[in-house]
Amino acid sequence: MSEHISDPIPQASVRPAKPLYLERRRLEERVFLALMRLCLLGAAAALGMILAVIFWRGVGALSVEMLTQPPRGNFYLGGGGGIANAIAGSILLASGATAAAFCWAAPLVLYLHAYARRSRFAAWVRLTLDVLWGIPSIVYGAFGFSLMILLGLRASLLAGVLTLSLVVLPILARTLDEVLRMAPHQLLETGFALGATRAEMAGLLLRQALPGLFTALLLAFGRGVGDAASVLFTAGYTDNMPGGIFSPVASLPLAVFFQLNAPFPAVQERAYASALVLTVMILVISLTAHLSLRRLGKHVVR
């Protein structure tokens, strides 16, 4: 054994990397960059094409009458009238469902954050919500329908709103949950140190979550407006304007569906016009949600 102790600081290798390797790595980077751009382009193209198709096929049938009149007698044979019944119905269904889901989701999520915190119970609630999120909305539709039968109710705005609120609930609750999860820990410490009870803490959390809350509401509304399967049996369909919570209402997705099924090209064109109306509504909502996140955050501490 020699007494020599190896040099504690290893000498850095000063040999330059082989130019060949560098070349290959540059090429690799270019290939992957190109691939990523291709994927991006693909996604953008898909959205662009959908918009283009419904625009070109639908814009011809779009008119003031289409937007402001309910269908007349021979509407599905190519006669006069419009889809105002479905527009109004969809707005009522989606806003009703969002409001109902909010009244349910907000206390639930605030409870999770102010009381249950990281308990096992909270983990279970989150898991349940995730499962609910994954259930296809036709299942909610079927559930709502069987419940209606049980209670002896007709297809109606009320039944549609309640069923749709089940679809929207997990979306709203989990989005809110994520928003509150981003609240800094110091918010809790500050509130409690000032002598807040847990209920008062919930109020403080809600304040902190306000911009995110608005976004969550819009997302839920957007989802509700576009959902067809849950309202198919529960809200029914009618050619009349909405007439109270106990009578059936029309909805845009179903309007698209029924018109697209008609054998007449003129009616099919109107289906595309209806789809255009629906898409524009959802686009506007999504954009507002996106922009509001920045606007409403003025009091929020980051």
Partner: peptide, 20 residues
Amino acid sequence: VAVRSRIGLLAQKPFPLPMS
């Protein structure tokens, strides 16, 4: 809550509540 309202805390980083 009563205990906490008798004891104040000034944190390391200033933390204004999300309000005026």
